[in-house]
Amino acid sequence: MSNPTEPSATHHVFDGAVDAVEDLGNVVEGIVDDLVLDRIDALKVLRAGTKEQKSAVLEQIAGRGKPEQDIVSELSKLKPLWRPDRFEEAHRMAMHSLEVLDRNGARAAQLPPLGPLKPIAQYVVQQMTRWIVKGHQNTLVTRIRKLYERREANSEWGSPEHHMLRRARIDAARVEPGYKGNPLGLPTFLVGGAILSSVISGLRAFIDWAFNGGLVQGVVLASVGGLVFGFLAWAALYSAGVARHRIKLCTDQPVKALWETVGACGHPPKDGSYDFAVYAIILLALAWVLVPLAIWLVVAKLN
């Protein structure tokens, strides 16, 4: 016989259930406390009498993150140039790197053997590479010019830094229009004129032919769509790699040195190669989805 003074299995189960309920109660109580604290913080903002008090309460609620730390750090650096002795050299190197990128960044890339498709692939990759490189080039020269303008404005009038920034700003403003242009390198009438309308009309007629036909036409549509999306995905990914490599060779280091020489001005702008890589993945996913979907729609229509 069991000893009546020893706890039974039922007692252990009951004790465990009680502990679980207590833990759950503590969690709920913590959530309620957080909600009450949030409401109290909101009441503090509402009860604050002056704008200064409201601002102080809001700052206390929000806390201090990386942007706030950067603001304090940049405000504490009052010099318009962190390294004025290296600024002119860094400026010349940045301008030279932009020139080299403008001349070589959009040139035709070396492609793997693609047979008869190589001329088409060469053209598409070159246009996509040009889009990335020229877009980054336009952004970069504009950011440099704006940076010079703002540092010139907060430099002491007549100081050596003011003269250096003024000359650099004039240089950047002079060359900026020459670096800006059509990223695609195509005439405007090709992009928005009759040729584009003809291409869209042809695609619409092809889709109507496929959906109004039988299974063979549907398979043809799905196959062509899959090949087109797959080709565009490969071209976008390859172009992103080519553009990233050329931008890294030409401008990454000189522009980084310029930003460090100016000081307390954030980070240099990034190029769009990563975005193009994301677009390539999306196109590839569309190819995987649209091909089976088109075949299923045709089969469902026939049935």
Rank of each mutant, 00 (worst) to 15 (best):
M1V: 13
S2Q: 10
S8M: 04
H12S: 11
E22P: 00
V27C: 04
E29N: 08
G30Q: 14
D33R: 07
D38H: 10
D38F: 10
V45A: 13
L46F: 06
R47C: 09
T50K: 08
V57I: 15
L58G: 03
E59G: 10
R64S: 12
R64A: 08
K66S: 07
D70R: 14
L78Q: 12
R83Y: 08
R86H: 12
R86E: 14
E88Y: 01
H91S: 13
H91T: 12
A94F: 09
A94L: 10
M95Y: 07
S97G: 04
L98P: 04
L101A: 06
R107K: 14
A108W: 03
A108P: 07
A109H: 07
L111T: 09
P113F: 09
G115V: 10
P116W: 01
P116T: 10
P116D: 11
A121D: 07
V125N: 13
W131Y: 08
W131R: 02
V133P: 02
H136K: 02
Q137H: 06
T139H: 00
T139N: 10
L140H: 03
L140R: 02
I144R: 04
I144S: 06
E149G: 07
N154R: 13
S155Q: 04
E156K: 13
S159F: 06
M164Y: 03
R166C: 04
R167H: 09
R167N: 11
R167C: 04
A168T: 05
D171F: 02
D171W: 06
A172N: 05
A172M: 05
V175C: 02
E176W: 04
G178T: 09
N182Y: 08
L186V: 00
T188L: 13
F189E: 15
S198N: 09
V199I: 15
S201M: 12
G202Y: 09
G202C: 10
R204C: 02
I207V: 15
F211V: 07
G213S: 09
G214P: 11
A222D: 08
V224E: 07
A233V: 00
W234Q: 03
A236E: 02
V242E: 14
R244G: 05
H245C: 01
R246C: 03
R246A: 01
I247T: 02
K248I: 03
L249S: 09
L249Q: 14
D252A: 10
V255D: 01
A257R: 06
A257S: 05
L258G: 06
E260S: 13
T261C: 15
V262I: 15
G263E: 04
G263D: 04
H267C: 01
P269V: 09
K270P: 01
D271R: 01
I282H: 01
P292N: 07
P292Q: 07
K301S: 15
K301I: 04
N303P: 04
